[in-house]
């Protein structure tokens, strides 16, 4: 359940540096800070839903978010993740369409909620932001096209290996340098890889048996990163 922060971070003192909002001048940042709302979302809370009208841009101050689409028979398909500094909902606001996916908190997360008209005005007035958005959209398109290829061509083992690599890219490792810094259920990994939970459990066991990963409770430890990459059958 969302509740307002008692002390909401203002953009200039946020601490994040990766967001494209961080690159704005102080006037624009102050305008956003003045007009934004903030919320804490618990694990499992929905930030916005696929198909709903897009009224806001969301900037992740802290936490981990998954974006998913509803597939056949109501099955969830995870399309990407967001972490501190990432923005969500921008594509819907830029194209004047409903939200393209559902955003759900994977752990307690603090999100800054920026009204649509504030975001659109700043984009209109600030061409440098537009150029950054163009680059961001280009990366999104490249990811979407790669995902299409993966779904079309890769075996289940390759797709699950790819899913693990995506988790590493999105969230990194814990301090030990080998445990993926996120907890996901087998069902969520299945949703990400586009397969069933049963197949995911079986494939993770196989990867563990082959010495590529180690399954330690909810943690997934990468014991052979080189072999994991080889298992994705990607040579870019």
């Amino acid at each position: 359940m969302k509740k307002n922060c008692t002390e909401s971070p203002i953009c200039s003192k946020c601490g994040n540096t990766q967001s494209i909002i961080c690159g704005l001048n102080d006037t624009d940042k102050n305008e956003i800070s003045y007009r934004k709302d903030d919320g804490i979302y618990k694990k499992g809370d929905i930030i916005f839903k696929e198909g709903n009208n897009a009224h806001n841009l969301f900037c992740v101050h802290k936490g981990k978010i998954k974006l998913s689409k509803l597939g056949k028979d109501g099955k969830e398909q995870i399309v990407r993740f967001a972490k501190s500094g990432d923005i969500l909902g921008y594509r819907s606001l830029l194209s004047n369409e409903p939200y393209h996916a559902t955003a759900t908190a994977m752990e307690e997360s603090e999100i800054c909620v920026i009204p649509k008209e504030v975001f659109q005005k700043i984009v209109e007035d600030n061409y440098k932001l537009s150029l950054n958005l163009i680059q961001l959209l280009s990366k999104d398109l490249k990811s979407a096209e790669q995902h299409l290829i993966d779904v079309a061509q890769k075996t289940v083992r390759e797709r699950i290996s790819e899913a693990l690599l995506l988790l590493i890219t999105s969230f990194g490792y814990l301090a030990d340098g080998k445990t993926i810094n996120v907890h996901m259920t087998r069902s969520e990994i299945a949703d990400l890889a586009g397969t069933t939970t049963e197949t995911t459990i079986r494939t993770l066991s196989q990867l563990s048996h082959d010495g590529i990963i180690s399954l330690e409770g909810k943690n997934i430890v990468i014991t052979n990163h080189t072999e994991l990459i080889r298992n994705t059958n990607t040579y870019d």
Binding site: K69, S95, V151
Partner: peptide, 28 residues
């Protein structure tokens, strides 16, 4: 050219949507 950039944003958004739809079709 901001006008050029604006149309480029629209084009990229539409291409992403079409690609996602195709992926969804492949999965479903």
């Amino acid at each position: 050219n901001p006008e050029f950039g604006k149309i480029m944003i629209e084009i990229l958004c539409e291409r992403i949507k079409l690609t996602d739809n195709k992926t969804k079709s492949f999965m479903n």
